[in-house]
Structure formats: C-alpha cells, structure tokens
Design a protein around this nucleic acid. Structure first.
Length: 569
RNA sequence: UGGGGCGUCGCCAAGCGGUAAGGCAGCGGCCUUUGGAGCCGUUAUCCCAGGUUCGAAUCCUGGCGCCCCAGCCA
C-alpha cells in the first residue's frame, strides 16, 4: 500500500555507514535520546527519538534512553514518567538501558578533579554578571578571569569546598580553561559546574554542585559508549567543546571511557499552523488557550495520542520528512496524509450524521425495518461486514441537502434523487418547515428497484449520502478539531505574538450527532472512519457517564469543498 | 568588524563532476454505491555572477539571502 520510504537516504545514515565501512567503533552503533525531564515531549522530540532508535535498529546497534537531569531546579519526576509513557507509546524500546545523567555524578566529579589537576579547569569567583562582562561580545574577544591562573592545589581545595557546601549559590563556579579570545563564544572558558543548593529529583540533597550540559553531556556519551551523538543544529557551535570534553575524558578517565563519541547535528522539526517549543506550548497551557498539555489540539505526544493519532503515522511522518541540516517547515498536510494513509486500511467504517436533518420516506411502510449489509472496510473482505437497520425515518447530514443547489452538487435537493449509502435511492418531494421557517424535515419517496446490490432501475444515481435510521440512532458528542493556528506561520502574524493567530474554531463540538447502532460496540480507544467525514477516535479518557464522545483525528479529503471554494473565487 | 550553519519544484528531500529521485500539495483524466480510497498523467537546470572542465546542482572565486551563538538552561 504505502510505498517504501528510503529512510536511509539521509546524511546521518550515510555517515554511519561510512564509519562502519571504515571500521570505527569495532562495527558498533550505539545511540541515545537525551530528554531533559522539564516538560512534555512533542512531535519534534518524536523525530529525534525515532531517528535515534531507528538508527540503532537499522544497524543492529543499541539505543539508550537517558534523562539529562543536571538542573534540579527545572526538573521533576512527573516529566520522567510522562516521557517514558510517551516513548513507549511511540514504540521506542531502550530495553534495560534507562539511564539518568545523575546516576554518574560521582564519576563526573572525579573527572572534574582531574581536569583541575591537569590545569584544564579552575574555580572562578566572578559573579554571573562579571562573567558575562569578561566574556566579551560576539565581535569582541573576552578577557581572562583574574582567577584563571590559580594553582591546581588551590582549585582542588576550592572545588572540594564547593561540593562540601561551604559557599552559597552563585559564589563560585568551575570553569574550563580554554580560550577567552575564541571567535566561538562557547570556548571562552565555559562554566562546568555551578553551586545549586537544591533538591534533585533523584539524588536528593546529596549534591549542591551540578554539572552543566556542555560538560555532562559529552562525558555521559563517553561513559555510555555512545558512538553517534545526534542533536539539533543549534548545538553546532558546541561541537568543539563537546570534542574538548571527549578528548580529555579519553585521556584522563581511561578506566571508565567507553568510546570516542562524535556529535552530529540535524535540523529540528517545524510544522505549519503550529508552534513547537516548550516555552510557547507552556504558554498555550498556562494562558488557558487549551485544556492542558494533552489537549487533542496540542502537538505534544500526549495530545496527539488523545486526539487519536496512531503512533505508526508519526513514525511514517518522521521518515517521509527525512533528516537534513537545512531549516525547514513541513506542511501540516503531510502529517495529515500520513494519518489518513495509516487509517485507510485499518479503520472500520461507520455512518454518523454530525448535524442531522430528518428525512421521511413517505412511501415506506410504518414500522417496517430492513437490514442492509455494509462492508467494514471496502476492498477488504477480511474485515467483515455489518448489518445496519433502515427504516421510514432516517437522519442525513444537513449540508447534504440544498434547496437551491449550485452546479455539481451531487446530493439531495428538491426533485432530485440521491442514494442512501447501501440502501435505496430517494427522491425529495417536499421540504417541511417549522414555525420559524427552518427546514424541519424532508419528505421523500424511495424506489424499491434501487435496492443496493441489485439495482434494477437502470438509472445511474450520482450522489451517495450517509444516513442513520432515526429509530435506531445512537446520540453522540463529537469534537471537531482543527489546527490551533489560522496562520501557516503563527509567529509571522500578530506582530510576532503567536497567540494572536490562535484559531477560534480549533474546537467545534457537535452535541446532536447520531450514529448507527453498532457505534456502541466500539470500545474507548477505537479509531473509526465516519464515512464521508473523517477519522475519529473514541476518547478513552472520558468517563462513559458523559455519553459516547468521539474526537476527530483528521477530516477526509473534501473534493466538494475544494470545488465550492474554487467557484467562489 | 566575530564564530557556526543553510540555500535543489508551492512544502519536505535525494544527488558527492557525466548531463535534476521520491513524497506531500496542486492540476488534468480514469474508476468509484465514501465527491474517500485506488489508478494514469503533469510541474525545476539547482540563490546570483564569474571561473575550472569535453562536461558542474556537484570543484574554485566573489557576491546575495536566511538561521543559530554573548544562561552559573538544555
């Protein structure tokens, strides 16, 4: 069905293939996904996690899940749990290799001491602001800290006292001794350790100094034997520092160093009609624009899960998007395609009328009920069939009837005929109105010769419309989700304030929807196609006491909407 | 006036000196008891300008444009 996507045709796979051919790492491939447990994972993280996991699988290597938990102030257990849940749902498997950066704080401390002994690191007493001033600017070199030339012995003593808790937060830091004049600001004696009297979610109060990312991350890669350390493009400037740490780790910590890890950067995912940064997503939640991190409109993994998006669709999407180094913004349509593509052959069809209007078949005998058989999935006999009751009164979609139809409206209108899917053709004879003039019902007649499957009328009936027998209809609530933002680039509109382009119609609730009887058989968590409407997910998080609630995952392609839009122009 | 990165069809993206893959979207058509799905067809000379070469998207030079970097965040 879906074409084979050549996931290997990207520069990362090519590079690893070359490394393998060159005999690096004894033919070993080992990757990792290093989230910081300070928020929820979103689809951009899924790209990174799936890429790393996919590489390990493809090359018969290993994959670690590692929490980058070096900042106790921002990180929480709650996020560790949600990240694990999200990754499992995505199908990512780290076997028994779940690690925390904090697991190895001891070795890291030892490494820091050796750097000091080797004259490669020093304790600096400058304040945050002073350090910033000494750092220079992007175009001007920095100047050496007055503490840069302290003796190893003094540095060692000071660093140990930092660890002992002799100094308050911010009093001193451990810095790498590299080059204050480097054009790369990251090399201007970066901070390695800072004092933080904070309780860590795993190590408690055991430590009051914590390593910085630039020191911790490369060294942890070396400890875990990570051969290929993939990260996003904004870390490119950090690569020389990464290498600095790795090189010195190999040299000073041979007893624990597993391999000379290499960092490779790739572009992070951006999507139209969406914002993908923890900060902005947090704002959406905190300002109440959505109901929470798992709101079905959010691009968080938990949101997508709750929306009903199948994990396979996310993996397929990731592969189709590919991996490169150039900034890119993927069209949301591509993601929607992947979802439909996955569900097309999997989701059973059901008829559900979102906005019902009653259609009365005046020549159908009162109380007579016929059962019509419908395929669960067209062209897939294995998926079976179901019987749907058909009677004198049925509901059809309000928008499937027009009194004064435009050209090409292959649906119901006065004096016109349309087929009720799987049943008979009906002709509209009369429009019944209520006191306020609104259409209350349609009076139609059916032609017995048009019975589906053995139509002997000889007529060709263009339009086919879905329906639900009024006597057997199951009332439903349906949440129609749309993109969270009206603009392709939410940032570009509203003077850079993305909240200005929030789509006021990102959620429309249909409380009068009517479904065919066997809709009840679909358990919470089921994904169905509502014929001619879209793919829907029975929200498992809603108690059944609230009735049956479905979320629209994604609408079906709507050619008619397109025709109409074009003719309006 | 610093450092790093990127520029191939509307959106992604292959290509690694031998004469521009593929996907999404679009358009046209076929088919269809979902205006769904499926099927067929269709859309680029590669940011610009020079140069090297028999030959360049691929190499060189010079421009232009866009992104990232001055947290004791990751």
């Amino acid at each position: 069905m879906s074409q084979e996507i050549d996931a290997q045709s990207n520069f990362v796979y090519a590079m690893i293939q070359e490394d393998l051919e060159a005999g690096k790492h004894d033919g070993r491939v080992h990757t990792r996904f290093p989230p910081e447990p300070n928020g929820y994972l979103h689809i951009g993280h899924a790209k990174a996690a799936l890429l790393n996991f996919g590489i390990a699988q493809h090359f018969g290597g290993k994959f670690n899940l590692r929490f980058d938990d070096t900042n106790p102030i921002a990180e929480e257990e709650e996020f560790v749990d949600s990240i694990i849940e999200d990754l499992r749902w995505l199908g990512v498997d780290w076997e028994d290799r779940l690690f925390f950066s904090s697991d190895s704080f001891d070795v890291k401390y030892r490494f820091a001491e050796r750097l000091i002994e080797a004259g490669l690191a020093y304790v600096c007493d400058l304040s945050t602001e002073q350090i910033r001033n000494y750092r220079g600017t992007l175009t001007e070199p920095g100047t050496d800290s007055p503490y840069r030339d302290r003796s190893p012995a003094e540095n060692l003593d000071l660093f140990r006292r930092m660890r002992e808790g002799d100094f308050p937060d911010g009093a001193r830091v451990l810095r790498a001794r590299i080059d204050m004049t480097s054009g790369n600001v990251n090399l201007r004696d970066p901070v390695l350790y800072r004092i933080l009297h904070a309780t860590h979610h795993r190590t408690g109060d055991q430590w009051c100094i914590y390593p910085m990312y630039d020191f911790d991350h490369p060294f942890t890669d070396v400890l875990e034997g990570i051969t290929h350390s993939l990260c996003s493009i904004e870390y490119s400037d950090h690569r020389p520092l990464y290498d600095w740490v790795v090189d010195h780790a190999m040299e000073l910590m041979p007893e624990v160093a597993q391999c000379r890890s290499r960092q490779t950067e790739f572009a992070r995912l951006n999507m139209t009609h969406m914002v993908l940064s923890k900060r902005k997503l947090r704002r959406m939640v905190e300002e109440g624009h959505v109901e929470g991190w798992d709101d079905p409109r959010m691009p968080t993994i938990s949101g997508l899960r709750r929306r009903g998006v199948p994990p396979n669709a996310i993996a397929d999407f990731q592969e189709r998007v590919g991996v490169a180094r150039s900034d890119s913004t993927v069209d949301m349509a591509m993601f929607h395609f992947c979802i439909r593509n996955d569900l097309e052959t999997k989701a059973h069809r059901r008829m559900v009328v979102l906005e019902p209007i009653k259609l009365i078949i005046t020549n159908w005998p009162e109380d007579s009920v016929e059962r019509v058989e419908l395929e669960n999935i067209p062209n897939d006999p294995g998926a079976g069939t179901r019987e749907v009751p058909f009677g004198r009164e049925v509901y059809i979609e309000r928008e499937d009837f027009m009194e004064d139809p435009p050209r090409k409206f292959h649906r119901l209108s006065p004096g016109e005929e349309v087929r009720l899917k799987g049943a008979y053709a009906v002709m509209c004879n009369e429009v019944i109105r209520d006191d306020s003039g609104n259409i209350a019902a349609l009076h139609c007649t059916y032609d017995p010769a048009t019975r589906s499957g053995n139509d002997t009328s000889g007529r060709k009936i263009r339009g086919v419309v879905h329906w639900v027998s009024a006597a057997h209809a199951e009332p439903l609530t349906v949440n129609l989700y749309d993109t969270l933002f009206t603009e392709e680039d939410p940032e570009a509109a509203g003077d850079g304030d993305f909240t200005q382009s929030i789509n006021p119609e990102s959620l429309r609730i249909r409380t009068n929807a009517m479904g065919e009887p066997c809709i009840c058989d679909s358990p919470p968590g089921a994904r169905l196609q509502f014929m001619r409407k879209g793919y829907f997910y029975r929200d498992p998080q809603r108690p059944t006491s609230e009735g049956i609630i479905f979320n629209r995952i994604v609408p079906l392609k709507d050619t008619w909407a397109k025709i109409r839009k074009k003719s309006k122009k």
